[in-house]
Amino acid sequence: MNKDKLKGDLDQVKGEAKEQWGKLTDDKSTETEGKWDKAKGKLREGVGEVKDKLD
């Protein structure tokens, strides 16, 4: 597992927590930030997978 995959996984976990917190507190801004963090994490994880295949 390379650094991009690990950071991607962490971003997804952080995003999920932030999204759930936003739902719990009825804060749409935080919920949206969480969704963006999850998307960013999925993208970074994909980059890591491509790097693994190229190595």
Rank of each mutant, 00 (worst) to 15 (best):
K38V: 00
K51N: 11
L54M: 13
D55H: 08
T30E: 11
E45S: 06
G22M: 01
D37N: 04
G48F: 12
K42C: 08
G41K: 14
V47K: 09
E49F: 13
W36P: 03
D55Y: 09
T32K: 13
L43D: 06
A17I: 12
G46Q: 11
D11S: 04
D27S: 04
V13R: 02
L6Q: 08
E19M: 05
R44T: 10
K14W: 04
G8Q: 03
K35W: 05
D26W: 01
R44Y: 12
D11F: 03
G46C: 08
G48N: 08
K51W: 12
K53I: 15
E33G: 01
D27I: 02
W36V: 12
D11T: 01
G46K: 10
K7C: 09
D26K: 05
K28Y: 07
D4S: 13
E33A: 14
T30Y: 08
K23T: 09
T32G: 04
A39D: 11
K51H: 08
E45A: 07
E49D: 15
K28I: 15
D11L: 06
K23I: 14
E16G: 00
D9Q: 09
V50N: 10
D37P: 02
E31Q: 05
K18V: 01
K14L: 06
A39E: 10
V13F: 03
K14M: 03
E45D: 13
L10D: 02
W36M: 09
K3R: 10
D27Y: 06
K18H: 00
E49H: 10
D9L: 15
